[in-house]
Simulated scan of single mutants.
Amino acid sequence: MIFLHGWLHSGRVWKDIAEHFSSAFTTFEVDLPGFGKSSPIQPQNVTMTSYAEYIYHFINEVTNHTQKPVIVADSLSAILCLHILSNHKFKFRHLFLLGCPSDGLPNYIPALSKFIQLNWILRALRGLPDRVLKIFVKDLNVITLWNRSIDANPLIYSIKNVDPQSAHNLLAIMLEPYSPEINYPTSKITLLRGQYDRLAKPKTLEKLSAHLNDAPIIEIPDSGHSVMLENPLKLIECISNHLE
């Protein structure tokens, strides 16, 4: 069972959910290049294709090209899985795409990116004490968080262990909409979103579902974009029900 994180997160955000499923599966909480404990790749190589190929080869390596894994991919990684589906015939038992912003990001984020050097901001944030970062994560993060009662430690860890340039370059790529060209029939795909998700809105998932042979859409209550931290028990229940 492979868990893939979103932008500015790391595999650490999946720790509790992965532990729940570890009695039935071998679980992997993957750090994408430049996030968590993974080394960054060269800035000129930061593309959706290069990151998608990284995930594709990782999946093949840990499954030995024969097993069908369960894959849970959040946000950025959900888009990367769409790239893989467009370019490879890879086997999976079930693919959960969580909070997939396939229509691109809201207009105010590209506007802000023109005036803000994100890489310098991230360098500054990494040097702040944890107690200050906790305020930033829980009180100032209105874009991705709805439930402020979350454990902030996985997000603090992720911010302190991100490569600022990788995050900066990836955000610029994520601004554009992405319509997957799936070249073969897909099944066993479920689209998930938090009830108050500001980045993956209902119309976005409806359009994506149409590209994926009317993949079912499930809404997780009492959560925003970071569902795995805001309502982990409901997310576990949803994944378990579909696997059964």
Rank of each mutant, 00 (worst) to 15 (best):
I2A: 05
F3W: 04
L4G: 07
L4S: 07
G6Y: 03
G6D: 07
W7L: 12
W7F: 09
L8G: 07
S10F: 04
R12K: 13
D16P: 03
A18V: 04
E19F: 01
E19D: 09
S22A: 11
A24C: 06
V30C: 09
D31T: 11
L32F: 09
G34W: 04
G36S: 04
K37T: 12
P40S: 05
I41V: 12
P43Y: 13
T49N: 14
S50I: 07
Y54H: 14
Y56A: 15
I59T: 05
I59A: 05
N60E: 15
V62L: 05
H65D: 15
T66V: 13
K68L: 08
K68N: 12
K68I: 02
P69K: 05
V72I: 14
S75E: 06
C81K: 00
C81N: 03
L82F: 00
I84E: 00
L85Y: 08
K91T: 06
F92S: 02
R93A: 03
R93V: 00
H94S: 03
H94P: 04
L95M: 04
F96N: 02
L97R: 03
G99T: 05
S102K: 01
S102T: 10
G104K: 07
L105D: 12
N107D: 12
Y108F: 15
I109W: 02
A111D: 10
F115K: 08
I116G: 02
Q117E: 13
L122A: 10
A124E: 09
G127T: 08
L128Q: 10
I135H: 13
I135Q: 14
V137W: 02
N141V: 09
V142P: 05
I143Y: 10
I143H: 15
L145W: 03
W146E: 14
W146F: 14
W146N: 13
N147E: 09
S149L: 12
D151H: 07
D151Q: 09
A152M: 02
N153K: 06
L155F: 03
I156G: 02
I156M: 01
S158A: 14
N161L: 00
N161C: 03
V162Y: 02
P164E: 02
P164T: 04
P164N: 05
S166A: 13
A167M: 02
H168K: 10
N169W: 03
A172V: 07
M174Q: 11
L175D: 08
L175N: 10
P177R: 01
P180R: 00
P180Y: 01
I182C: 03
N183W: 01
Y184P: 06
S187I: 00
K188I: 00
I189R: 11
T190S: 14
L192G: 11
R193L: 09
R193M: 12
Q195I: 02
Q195M: 08
R198E: 13
R198F: 09
L199F: 14
K201D: 13
L205R: 09
L205A: 08
E206I: 12
A210D: 15
H211T: 12
N213V: 02
A215T: 10
P216I: 01
I217W: 11
I220F: 13
S223Y: 05
H225W: 08
S226W: 08
E230W: 06
E230D: 08
N231H: 12
N231S: 11
P232S: 05
L233I: 04
K234G: 11
C238A: 15
S240D: 15
E244T: 12
